[in-house]
Every structure is written in C-alpha cells, then in structure tokens.
Design a protein around this nucleic acid. Structure first.
Length: 531
DNA sequence: AGTGTATGCTCCC
DNA sequence: TGGGAGCCCTACAC
C-alpha cells in the first residue's frame, strides 16, 4: 500500500504532497456519502454556499466588486468574507511552527487565547497549573500554581498573591505542603477569560472547584465546590469538567464528571443544578448571540441544546443530537453562532446548522480516537471564516498512513484545506485554537504549547524562542524537583521535543545556518508571506 | 533500550 | 446504577 511511502516522506514532505494528501482525504477517504450529502446541502443552503463556490474562480477580483457595492450601502459582509477566506486558506500553507514552551510538568488540558491581546494565551494543565504568556514577549508570563490544597491549608493562597514571584522563586520553596493533598486530579478541565475583567479566568478544576482566578495576584474566589467524599485516596468523587460565562445572562455554566449540569450566578450563587446527562459533561457553552440557548456535550454519546428559560430536568432539552461515540465538545461558530461543531471520541467531526438541528450538515471522517493518557481532541472554529482546526491522531483503521498533523477544514464543503506539521514537534496536538485575530494557531502537544503563524520566528525570533524554552525548562526543573518530593507517582518532567531542543541549540551555535533548517518549516517558509 | 506511571471509557455482572 | 476488569496504546522520567 501507499502507507510506506507516505511514512518515509515524513519530514521532507513537499508542499505539493501535503496538498495532494489534502485532496486524498477529502476525496476517497471521505466517501461518497459525504459528497452526496454535500451536494444536497448546497441546494438547501441556496445562494450562500453556491456563491462560495463561484468565488473560487473570481478570487481576489470580486473583492473589489463587493467593496464597491458595500460603499453603495449594500450589506455584503458575508460575501466579502467569503472572498477573503480563499486567500486566507492559501496563506495557511505558509504557516509554520513558530515556537514552543513547556511550562508544566503535566500535559496540557486546555488552551484559551486572550480575548483582546492577540499574542497572549493561557494554558491549563493536568496538574492544575495555569500559565499565561505573551509568545511575542517571553518575559511576559504568569504562572498560577494548581491549588492541590484542601480547605485546611488556606495559607497556600498566598502563592497566588504574586504569580511572577511564584514562578521564579517559589518553585523549589513551597513543595512540602502540596504533597499530602494533591490528589490524582486537580487538572484544569475548562477555562474561560472573564469578559468583564480580562485579568481573570474562570476555572473548572479536577479537584472539584469552580474558581475565578486572577493573573494579577488576587486571591482566587471559589464559586462552587463539590462535596468532599472523604475517601482515602482522593478528596472528591465529583469534579467540574468545563465552564462558560454569559455576561448578558450574568451566569456561569459548568458540568461535572457524572453528568450534572450547574448554572451559577457570577457570584457563585447556585441557580440550577440537575443531572442532565448520563455521563460526564465534557463541554457546556452558551450561544453568544442567543443567550438562552445552551449546548452541552457528554460522554453519554449525546449533544443537547437547552432553553435556559425553560430548563427543568433531563427531559427538557430542545434538541438531542445522538452520536456514535462519546462527545468531547460542541462549539457554536463565533461568527454568527448558527452552527455547532462537535468532536466525538473516535472519527467524527460534525457540523450542525440551526436551520435543522435534527441532522448534521456534514460528518467529516477524521481520526482522533480517545486514549486515556492523551488530552481529548477537540475541533474548534476560526473566529470569522468558515474553517475549523483539529489535531489528527493517526489511525490505520480510519485512514492509513496518516501523520500527526494539524488539519484545517472548510466547514461549508467539509474539505481538508490545509495540514500543518513540523518534524520538531512530533507529538499529537490534541488542542488547537485560532487566536481572536484568526492569524495564529496555538496548540497543546503533551506538556508543550506550540504556536503556528506566518512569521519566520524560529529564525528571526530564535533568541526569544531559545530564551523562552530554556526559561521554562529551568523553571520546570525546579517544579519537577518539588513535585518529586511531594509525590512519587506525580512526577513528570516538562521537556520540549528532543529534536526541537537540538534545533534550538544548533540555531544558537550558528546564525548563518538559519535558512536551511527542517524540511517542513523551510518548505513552508518558501511560500509567499502575506501581510 | 527498556520500564514504569499517569482519575479514560466500555462493557458486563 | 454502581463497581471493577480490560482495554485504548502516549509521553514523559529514570
């Protein structure tokens, strides 16, 4: 089979090959079923989709036409946007791996871009830690230590009073207290920036709390805490797995590991709580445009839509979307909030549209199966184009010969339009999100945060990258030492990919070498650079 | 290079 | 509806 060939192509896979593979995937592997569905939809969707197709030929030319029409007072934003999507997709082929940080000793479980600062992102880890960084300014970083503390050790809160201090000096110092309490999971299940105060985040934690934490050193506020179970080896049997905020509703949603959904006021006051799912609630999200509409995803193989004005019990859902497997996420598209993107735990990415919630508009076959020791893979939207990003976990049963790429699909056609890959970042990228500007992708790969964009940063910013990496490795060492003391089973070290380290080291040695690095990156850099 | 370890999910009783 | 055996098969430290 062609498998072999593809595997050997790995590092130096040429751009044409990438493109070809994109074609392959959207073609034969996606099966006739899909294409038939696509055709059906086109007619259903009418002019909207057709125009997207028509502009493929028009390309840039038609943009001027729409700008002109727009100046005449016609509202044509969506068409203009579609025109711009095509050049954007083309520009994606020149995206490459920009830099990496490994701030944690446990794998990354969630990633959130800062809503207004396009180069700042926050990541949460399996160990309960949160790290805020500006990838352009490596010195701008804040580390929030995972609580891992029970009620009795309230003193530990001082840790958070000065996060920057904590990051540099407290790593080796505060170890003792953590051991006893740190249960198996104080992991960050979900995280959301507080829309009214971007220095804060709402955090759902595996230790059973929903908190509001501050990057400016204020004491975290516990908004909700699950019951202490009093068992020997852990503190809680129930913990929150996700969060979302609605400013207009003045409400938070969270769901727990057994299917309970909780609605809270912003002050933590409980508004509603009931077991709405039969198993873990993996995701809960308010529709930003229609604030009474709530989507929940669950390990019970369903995604459900709820009307918050009329939510009573598990039977009061508006719509149920059964899936073949457990579901990791259900995201409304940020642009008009009329679509829902779901990712299951095996090989389906679905796109539902508000015009008919009863069946998906598209089912994209895509390997991303569940594995116990991997952060669940979730497909996410581009902030304003009809595109989605998702990490691939190759599976020969689904699609033989795959690489561990980051895939970008057109959500209207279900076509794979681009794949990102770099030999120095060889792991599975479970989490991938575009920043709010839509021009950078942040990824979580094991313990490492990766950033992908068009800048030649491993070259021009290599010192920064180097500094960033070594800084985090150092801090991680301190952290690791501390953790080793606190628990022998909770040891894990933060390390960037060995190849990446080597690469950074060699960059340090010789400046002149810069343009000849790694196949994939280089080949992508050859591509034109817009902007 | 080889081993150990890490709070997922499913299925069956 | 709860508990536990069995299985999914990565990424890290030592």
């Amino acid at each position: 089979m062609k498998t072999r060939q593809k595997k050997s192509a790995d590092a130096s896979e040429s751009k044409s090959k990438v493109k070809k593979r994109a074609g392959e995937n959207s073609g034969p592997t996606l099966s006739k079923k899909l294409r038939e569905r696509k055709d059906g939809e086109t007619s259903k969707q009418g002019p909207h989709l057709k125009s997207a197709g028509a502009h493929k030929r028009g390309g840039y030319g038609s943009i001027l036409h729409y700008i002109y029409k727009s100046t005449l007072g016609q509202s044509l934003h969506s068409k203009m946007r579609q025109c711009l999507q095509e050049p954007f997709v083309r520009s994606l082929s020149s995206y490459h791996f920009h830099g990496a940080t490994s701030p944690f000793d446990r794998r990354i479980t969630c990633l959130e871009w800062h809503p207004t600062h396009p180069t700042t992102l926050a990541v949460g880890s399996k160990g309960g830690d949160i790290y805020l960084q500006d990838f352009k300014v490596p010195t701008k970083k804040t580390f929030l230590q995972g609580m891992g503390v029970g009620d009795s050790v309230t003193d530990m809160k001082f840790n958070k009073l000065n996060p920057s201090q904590l990051f540099t000096s407290s790593m080796g110092g505060l170890h003792v207290c953590f051991c006893a309490q740190s249960g198996a999971g104080d992991f960050i299940g979900g995280m959301k920036f507080c829309p009214t105060d971007l220095s804060k985040v709402y955090v759902a934690s595996g230790e059973g709390t929903l908190t509001m934490q501050s990057f400016e050193g204020r004491t975290p506020t516990v908004l909700s805490r699950s019951q202490d179970c009093g068992h020997d080896h852990h503190n809680v049997c129930y913990w929150y797995c996700c969060v979302d905020v609605s400013v207009s509703r003045q409400m938070l949603v969270t769901g727990d590991n057994v299917g309970q959904l909780v609605l809270l006021g912003l002050d933590g006051q409980k508004i509603f709580s009931d077991k709405l799912h039969k198993a873990k609630v993996t995701h809960a999200e308010f529709n930003p445009r229609c604030d009474w509409l709530l989507a929940t995803a669950s390990v019970d193989h369903t995604v459900k839509l709820w009307d918050l004005r009329n939510i009573k019990d598990k039977k009061s859902f508006l719509h149920e979307m059964p899936h073949e497997r457990a579901v990791n996420s259900a995201y409304f598209n940020p642009l008009d909030c009329s679509k829902l993107l779901t990712t299951d735990q095996y090989d389906q990415i679905r796109i539902y549209s508000s015009s008919d919630w009863s069946k998906p508009q598209h089912i994209i076959q895509h390997p991303h199966r569940q594995f116990q020791h991997l952060t669940p893979i979730k497909a996410t939207w581009h902030p304003f184009y009809d595109l989605i990003v998702v990490g691939r976990y190759p599976d020969d049963r689904v699609c033989p010969g795959d690489q561990r790429t980051i895939d970008i699909f057109d959500s209207n056609t279900a076509e794979l339009v681009c794949q990102l890959q770099d030999p120095t970042a060889s792991g599975i990228k479970s989490i991938n999100k575009f920043n709010p500007m839509g021009d950078v992708i942040g990824s979580g790969m094991g313990v490492t945060v990766l950033v992908w964009d068009q800048n030649e940063s491993l070259i021009s910013d290599r010192h920064k990258a180097q500094e960033e990496t070594s800084t985090s490795v150092d801090s991680l060492r301190g952290q690791r030492r501390r953790r080793q003391q606190r628990s022998s089973r909770d040891r894990r070290g933060p390390v960037v990919d060995a190849k990446l380290k080597k690469k950074l080291a060699s960059l340090e040695e010789s400046e002149s070498k810069t343009k000849t690095q790694t196949g994939c990156t280089k080949q992508k850099q050859v591509q034109m650079r817009k902007k």
